[in-house]
Computed example of a mutant assay.
Amino acid sequence: MAAMLGVIMIARLIAMYQGSRTMLIFLVIIFLAVNIACAVLVAIGLKYMGAAEEGILSGMHMCGHGFYGDVQLLFSMVWMLNTVWEVLALCLSVWIAVKHFRDLRHLGPSTGSTIGDCFRVLIQSHVLYFAG
């Protein structure tokens, strides 16, 4: 699921950067590095995760997992790497949005209204994604 959202994010950023091949290569390399690192960390973490335990407390069944070593640290690293990817994507989208709106302001209100409207809708949906 996260990989699918990452691919959608790359497609949106490439659209915002008007099909820049350099930006595409940069984003794909970063995306693959983050996802491969996360997959390796999760695999290592699952290897050292203990068996599930069930406890009964006052008639209620409670489930828990036992962890060996620093498994929770590995899972936190996965979360941090995904956060770094999201923050990078947010910064790139804000940067191009600010640059685009400066260009539109210098061109004047009559030119680029159709492109500006499309770009504005793309940015608004992008910001809604990050807000969610």
Rank of each mutant, 00 (worst) to 15 (best):
M1F: 09
A2M: 06
A2H: 10
A3H: 09
A3Y: 15
M4D: 14
L5D: 12
V7A: 12
I8A: 14
I10R: 03
A11H: 05
A11T: 05
R12T: 03
R12M: 06
L13S: 04
L13C: 05
I14G: 02
M16E: 03
M16P: 01
M16I: 07
S20Y: 02
S20A: 13
S20G: 13
M23V: 11
L24H: 09
L24G: 06
F26A: 05
L27C: 04
V28M: 12
I30D: 08
I30Q: 12
F31R: 06
F31P: 00
L32S: 13
L32W: 07
A33P: 00
A33S: 14
V34W: 01
V34S: 08
A37P: 04
A37C: 06
C38G: 09
V40Y: 09
L41M: 12
L41Y: 09
V42I: 15
A43Q: 01
I44R: 02
L46I: 04
L46W: 00
Y48C: 00
M49S: 08
M49W: 00
G50H: 00
A51V: 03
A51F: 00
E54N: 06
E54Q: 08
G55Q: 04
I56R: 04
L57N: 01
S58R: 06
G59H: 01
M62C: 06
C63H: 09
G64L: 00
G64Y: 10
G66R: 14
F67Y: 15
Y68K: 14
D70C: 03
V71G: 02
S76R: 13
S76M: 15
M77Q: 11
V78F: 10
L81F: 15
L81N: 01
T83S: 14
T83K: 15
V84F: 13
W85P: 01
W85L: 04
E86D: 08
V87S: 04
A89Y: 03
A89I: 07
A89K: 06
L92R: 01
L92A: 03
V94K: 04
A97R: 03
V98E: 04
H100N: 09
R102M: 11
R102Q: 10
D103G: 10
L104Y: 04
R105N: 05
R105F: 04
H106G: 00
H106M: 10
L107G: 11
G108Q: 09
G108K: 11
P109Q: 08
S110F: 08
S110D: 13
G112T: 03
G112M: 05
S113W: 06
S113E: 12
T114Y: 11
I115L: 10
G116H: 02
D117I: 08
F119C: 05
R120P: 01
R120C: 10
L122D: 05
Q124E: 11
Q124T: 11
H126R: 10
H126Y: 14
V127T: 07
V127C: 03
A131Q: 06
